[in-house]
């Protein structure tokens, strides 16, 4: 399975990835309806300390801490993709605490959300990869 990599050398911290991610996972057809005047909960975030910046999203670890710590069995891994079943998630946020990358956050419904490589979305390339203007996020 392909993974998302970031090339921090080319990250422009424009944060487009965050917005297109939020749009991709909003279920809305129109990007304006999806994002205008709403809090967004992107599954990728740009980290920037002034010197270095790059986008962070789930690494789909070989041995994911989040999966091990999940008390409700909501997190699973299949075909190299770690996914969260929001119907099983009880919102305890153990996964948020245990992720070493800070790649899991709380979604609008109070359940944990994270990057699932857009496999549930329009398909093909993850949106953050498609829309990164400088090829700083790649999927290989």
């Amino acid at each position: 399975m392909k993974k998302i990599y970031v090339q921090e050398e080319w990250c422009l911290k424009c944060r487009l990835c965050e917005y297109v991610c939020a749009y991709a996972n909003s279920g809305c057809e129109n990007i304006v309806f999806a994002l205008k005047n709403r809090p967004i909960s992107p599954r990728i975030t740009v980290e920037d300390d002034g010197k270095i910046c790059f986008a962070v999203s789930c690494r789909h670890c070989d041995d994911p801490s989040c999966l091990k710590g999940c008390i409700s069995g909501a997190i699973s891994k299949a075909d190299g993709v770690v996914r969260i079943d929001k119907n099983k998630c009880v919102g305890c946020l153990t996964c948020v605490l245990s992720c070493p990358y800070g790649a899991i956050s709380v979604g609008p419904e109070g359940t944990a959300t994270k990057c699932e490589l857009c496999i549930g979305n329009a398909g093909g390339t993850p949106m953050c990869v498609r829309f990164c203007p400088n090829r700083a996020i790649i999927c290989e």
Partner: peptide, 9 residues
């Protein structure tokens, strides 16, 4: 949508 991409760029 006030994403501020324009501002950053």
């Amino acid at each position: 949508i006030n994403c501020r991409v324009c501002e950053r760029q």
